[in-house]
């Protein structure tokens, strides 16, 4: 699978490309799962924005990952245990696509039946997004706003180059570790 490729490849550039492919694939998967809006977003974000950003970062940093050939066993162990738990858990999940799922029987019918009478628009996703759960969407706008603000404040600080000289400005700054 493409995902595995992403993990194995040390060339970050190639990994990015693979990642973009992966995003497109998952977007396709979303379409198959009837989630048009999500697919559109995933394609735009995963394959578009993320890729461009990662590439922009890569031009500023190194292209190749620091080699560490050992398999990280503790990490692998943690991951396997978590995976086991999940596999154990999903065995109790309802069958895929089963119309009797709680998901389909509890709230979904309300949305499906009432959207048109409540709002008069056919796209239920938009209706749920912007009206029924609009505070979530407000939160989402705020999140993206935070991201913009964060990147703006982070990257508008004038850059300094790698460790070479400790700039003078550091002299009156607290160095909080004891070993300095």
């Amino acid at each position: 699978m493409v995902a595995i490729g992403v993990t194995r490849i040390r060339d970050l550039f190639a990994a990015t490309m693979l990642f973009a492919i992966y995003s497109l694939l998952s977007a396709a998967l979303f379409v198959l799962l009837d989630a048009g809006d999500v697919a559109l977003t995933e394609a735009a974000v995963g394959a578009g924005i993320s890729t461009i950003l990662v590439l922009a970062v890569l031009t500023m940093t190194r292209r190749y990952e620091h080699p560490s050939n050992t398999v990280n066993w503790p990490a692998l162990a943690v991951v396997s245990v978590t995976g086991m738990c999940l596999l154990w858990a999903v065995s109790d999940l309802p069958d895929f696509g089963d119309p009797t799922n709680p998901v389909q029987t509890h709230l979904a019918p309300y949305f499906i039946n009432n959207v048109y009478s409540d709002m008069g628009i056919p796209n239920m996703v938009a209706a749920v997004l912007a009206s029924y759960r609009s505070i979530d969407t407000f939160g989402e706008v705020i999140v993206i706003f935070v991201a913009g603000l964060a990147v703006y404040t982070l990257l508008s600080v004038p850059p300094r180059t790698p460790p070479k000289p400790q700039p003078k400005a550091d002299a009156n700054q607290p160095e909080n570790r004891g070993d300095h």
Binding site: G36, D37, I49
Partner: peptide, 14 residues
Amino acid sequence: GEYSPGGGFQAGVV
């Protein structure tokens, strides 16, 4: 966006 997939977010990104 109210009639077909899409909405503010996707539009913004595009």
